[in-house]
């Protein structure tokens, strides 16, 4: 990795400083405005917050990789819903029911494979047609969501497996299952992006695609792998979430792509590709979840929460621009 300069440190530290600021603000504001009796910084509350960050968080990690690579994936919300349906519905199939608890890993496998396949379709189209990923995944977002509705109409798909619920609600070393999955995904993907040839090539491709091609990096296969990875992660997110809830509505996962992108951008990843960090994305996810929870804590409604998050996103992008300036001697724009 490149030398860390002060600028980079400030950039990577900014999201964590923001989180600390949020914590302080909501703790103090909560004293006066809170609708509940509990303190905001309550330990259980924080654990819950991490758990609730998991669904978007796992997807956002995949989105970071896709965006570093210079692409975007708008279909993750639909992939999430479709994988959830496969997970729950497959457990009701006769041969699966006959297998008892062995049906669980198999259902997981089906759901995850669904995600990988949907991701692979995106990746292949982007690779082989050369159409911009934004357009391709805009199309597949609509298409995959269509499949969700075809599967079960407007009806929710439900199946509760108590073994599964127990597993999902378990706490190991104090952290929930979902939190462990989130942390595991963050760690593995961080290693992937910083330590492996595949990850470094992804940065190079996003940064300067022509240079990467000239250097003999096979851009298409990289796209394919990364789309399969985000498909897998979207499905994993569904698997973790619906193991516990046991019921999926056809509209579930809508706007998840936008929340994931918001978290990624808050974490400092460049929309144009080539720059970004998985760890900072985790920061972005936590920051958003804190905002939602914190504003709820002091009595704001959902609309206000969305408005505030939108404003903060714009403010962050503006600050980022200021930070990237080189001072008085630099060129005016």
């Amino acid at each position: 990795m490149a030398n860390f300069k002060r600028k980079d440190l400030v950039k990577q530290g900014a999201i964590w400083a923001f989180i600390v600021a949020e914590l302080i603000f909501f703790s103090i504001a909560g004293e006066f405005l809170s609708v509940s009796e509990k303190a905001f910084m309550d330990f259980d509350n924080m654990l819950l917050l991490l758990k609730q960050s998991a669904p978007i968080g796992i997807i956002a990690v995949g989105m970071t990789i896709i965006m570093v690579n210079g692409n975007i994936d708008l279909s993750v919300g639909a992939t999430f819903a479709l994988a959830a349906i496969v997970l729950l519905d497959s457990m009701t199939w006769p041969f699966m029911q006959a297998m008892g608890n062995w049906a669980i890993p198999l259902a997981w496998l089906f759901a995850l494979a669904t995600g990988v396949i949907l991701g692979a379709i995106n990746g292949l189209i982007v690779w082989k047609t050369g159409v911009d990923a934004f357009i391709v995944t805009l199309g597949s977002m609509l298409g995959y969501r269509g499949l969700v509705f075809i599967y079960n109409g407007e009806q929710p798909t439900s199946h509760l497996n108590w073994t599964l619920v127990d597993f999902a609600e378990a706490q190991f070393l104090g952290l929930h299952t979902a939190t462990w999955f989130l942390l595991g995904v963050v760690l593995l993907c961080w290693l992937l992006m910083t330590r492996t040839v595949h990850g470094r090539n992804a940065y190079a491709i996003g940064n300067n695609r022509e240079a990467a091609v000239n250097a003999g990096i096979r851009v298409g296969p990289h796209f394919l792998w990364n789309f399969m990875l985000i498909g897998f992660l979207a499905a994993l997110s569904a698997v973790v979430f619906y193991s516990e809830s046991g019921s999926v509505n056809p509209n579930d996962g809508m706007l998840y792509e936008l929340w994931a992108i918001t978290a990624v951008v808050l974490g400092g990843t460049k929309l144009s590709g080539g720059y970004g960090s998985i760890i900072s994305t985790l920061g972005g996810v936590i920051a958003i979840q804190l905002l939602r929870k914190g504003l709820g804590h002091i009595g704001a409604d959902t609309e206000t929460v969305n408005l505030v998050i939108g404003l903060i996103l714009i403010a962050v992008l503006f600050l980022d621009r200021q930070l990237n300036r080189k001072g008085k001697e630099e060129l005016r724009t």
Binding site: M1, A2, N3, V197, R200, N201, Y203, A204, N207, N208, E210, A211, A212, N214, A215, G216, I217, G274, Y275
Partner: peptide, 18 residues
């Protein structure tokens, strides 16, 4: 110039063959 400017000198020199 055919370089990825967010990456290090070493990564650029060995681009495609790390």
């Amino acid at each position: 110039l055919s370089l990825a400017d967010e990456l290090s000198v070493a990564e650029n020199i060995y681009l495609g063959e790390l």
